[in-house]
Design a protein around this nucleic acid. Structure first.
Lengths: 258, 258
DNA sequence: CGATCGTTTGATCCGCATCAAGATAGGTGG
DNA sequence: CCACCTATCTTGATGCGGATCAAACGATCG
């Protein structure tokens, strides 16, 4: 509900709305709304009715689920430009399946879900953006699963640090962690203790972490260790080697035989 | 390339094409194609150009990725009615990110990707189906991740067995496993040995497995143990209790405080 | 009847979680 | 500016679940 004049500039820089024409922009502004949440404040909870879609303009939102035994699983940390959109909502008819809470002070663009539902049929590029978004989320999740299944703590951490660095355009030679270590550990699906113990070990692969300060001493070395399927600039690509192995394998589900 | 007359009946039973009118059906048949693969045969590999989308008419296809160290990760087992659609393909421009291989003799409906690309803009319900599909895949992946993170081997197995039973409309009081145990273990992200050792333990929760034969002795007992967030008929629902816990928690990422 | 595939069972090991103290840092009030 | 407090992180000791290595077992098949 704050200054809309400032914020309306922000909207059009979001990839989601960058292709709108002036008429469409005007229409969008009629229903768009701004919402600010303070650090630790909750945006919505699992089971809440889905009333709005949110675009993060600044700050960071942690999305998480709470398991029956009370453990919190951090699904994603959404930052500037990201959308809070529950893929599940499409099926479970307008109810959130995740909780969303502000990591820091955060401002969001809120657009009524009903408006989106109507206009997704009318504006083709909107539908297109949503399909891309959904595909991206599906892919994200697959990569996450693959990482959890194949990488150990050290690899997960260094992979995370590198993606973080690229995503936020940090200087690889030295930057500060934007989140608490507890949050990062949770995002990586490990305990804080494990995360903490892992950091010193990363020195071997050229990553020095002191307090909140991170430095990649030798970028290429860190790269090769981090994640065999990730590079700093691109996510888990398919390698020729991987394909070749698949060709050779026959039918056992363990290792590719030769 | 077998008998199209038989198969054309099959197509319209797929949820994907059930809403087409006669003109559209005719048009689809012009480009639709059938493909048969034998047990163990490969449909496509990571990195292959994506030329067709496939709908499984009968049989089962294992989708998997091969990690650089040669381990095969089974992402999904697609059966009758499922679509082989790589969410990643949308971004990585027409290349498969997964391998697909027949578990059993399988017949598929193949539709050229180019035709889909064109018609997705023309036929609104087609776009809608794809969005639902993508949303479903994203959701599937999230649930998978959550399961891997929170459940032990026994829970994973019993959850799998129950979903299997429901999905294939098996009799809970006794049915045969449709896949090899190695395949199931791989799908669950565990070693065959672990899977094998887990089966006897399930007797405690009312699941008896002898050879390939599975029986749920006490269905409600098995349910409550299997997966706190799953029921036999529905996947991982949000519970009121879970929401309540989230409300009480404040900011630590481990357990919800009170 | 040996050969191969799929599975079981046993023995051992390792990574991470868990429990339990300390240590450091950031913030507040005196 | 310091004393105090709490949040956040580090470090240590221990245990467990599942991976790994190894071997035997049972079925199916040529």
């Amino acid at each position: 509900m704050s200054d809309v004049k400032i914020s309306s500039n922000v909207i059009w820089t979001l990839p989601f709305f960058s292709k709108l024409n002036d008429v469409e922009k005007a229409e969008l502004l009629k229903v768009a709304n701004f919402r600010h949440v303070k650090r630790g404040e909750t945006l919505f909870l699992q089971g809440d009715r889905l009333t709005h879609f949110y675009w993060v303009c600044s700050g960071a939102i942690r999305q998480f689920r709470v398991t029956p035994d009370g453990r919190e699983l951090t699904g994603a940390i959404r930052t500037e430009g990201d959308v809070l959109y529950d893929p599940d909502a499409r099926q479970r008819e307008q109810h959130h399946a995740m909780n969303a809470r502000a990591v820091q002070e955060t401002s969001l663009l809120a657009i009524p879900a009903s408006w989106i539902d109507e206009h997704i049929k009318l504006w083709p590029h909107l539908a297109d953006h949503f399909m891309t978004l959904l595909a991206g989320r599906a892919q994200e999740a697959l990569i996450d699963t693959e990482h959890q299944a194949t990488m150990n703590a050290a690899q997960l951490v260094s992979c995370f640090l590198q993606k973080l660095c690229v995503l936020h355009h940090f200087d690889p030679h030295g930057f500060e962690l934007p989140y608490s270590k507890s949050l990062i550990a949770s995002r990586l699906g490990m305990e804080l203790e494990t995360f903490s113990r892992t950091l010193p070990k990363l020195r071997e692969v050229g990553i020095t972490v002191t307090g909140k300060h991170v430095a990649f001493d030798n970028i290429s070395l860190a790269q090769s260790h981090a994640c065999n399927a990730c590079t700093v600039t691109e996510e888990c690509l398919t390698h020729a080697a991987m394909q070749e192995m698949a060709t050779r394998s026959v039918g056992n589900y363990k290792k590719s035989g030769q």
